[in-house]
Design a protein around this nucleic acid. Structure first.
Lengths: 129, 129
DNA sequence: CAGAATAATAGTAATCATTACTGAAGTGCA
DNA sequence: TGCACTTCAGTAATGATTACTATTATTCTG
């Protein structure tokens, strides 16, 4: 199935790439609606799915019940604040050793990848202040 | 809130500890029903939640839409087959280096923990044979 | 041990994120 | 332009989980 170029898909991708907040589908829906008031939530879900299959974005399966999406497909891990739920990028320079060890184990176990999420409380967490 | 001793809770815990399969709530429900035919799914969910809060079991938030539960609370990671969905333990001797690196980064980032999941295809995967 | 207070239960209803469906509209190639 | 394919908005359905309720069990206290 070939992806055609639609306004909806282009704007969803543009808006996601502007953000560093790893939005859920409904968060991105309300952002995109400012530019496309008619868009439906199903369209957002469908395009996020298609774009992640196409490798243009990442679908993050972190803890919490909603999936989140990331417009930055470079290798990096995430930190999640257990109090406010915010998801932040972990600078990949911090995980060089971790990644080296993970790659080694992955090769040994012949697995295709891994998912890693750090959990803690963010500084100045709005949920605690 | 103090946990009282009920048959239902005891049997849920016993059956979970017998398993190495990291069952979902509904999988454990059908197992427990063989000993307690009257038990309700809500009771299984509630007790799994309470037991994990009490630190007696682990609630696993892996990829996939259903949560899974683990009666083995010792530190270890999991491997998930992306084809059949099965979740297996990773022998913790294999992740000594990984854990060392992870602990270091966790301390540096002042975070409280991490979740790690390996993804791949299991040998002789039933979904592919 | 009784009786009060608390916690848990079965059964059912509600929630809510996500996916599926539908008929109409848009896209892209010959 | 015409035709096949894809996507859309809007809505309905799904499915895991949680909440509610009236009843029963467990624990605490005197």
């Amino acid at each position: 199935m070939k992806l055609s170029n639609t306004n909806q898909r282009r704007i969803i991708l543009e808006e996601l790439r502007k953000l560093k907040t790893h939005p859920t589908a409904d968060e991105l829906y309300s952002i995109v609606r400012e530019r496309l008031p008619q868009i439906s939530l199903g369209t957002v879900y469908r395009n996020l799915e298609l774009l992640s299959e196409a490798g243009e974005i990442l679908k993050l399966e972190l803890s919490g019940k909603q999936k989140r999406f990331d417009g930055d497909i470079r290798h990096h891990h995430h930190f999640r604040c257990k109090d406010c739920g915010k998801v932040m990028d972990v600078d990949s320079s911090k995980t060089v050793e971790v990644d080296k060890a993970l790659d080694k184990v992955s090769r040994e176990m012949k697995c295709q990848g891994y998912r890693l999420e750090f959990i803690g409380s963010c500084k100045d967490c709005p949920a605690l202040n």
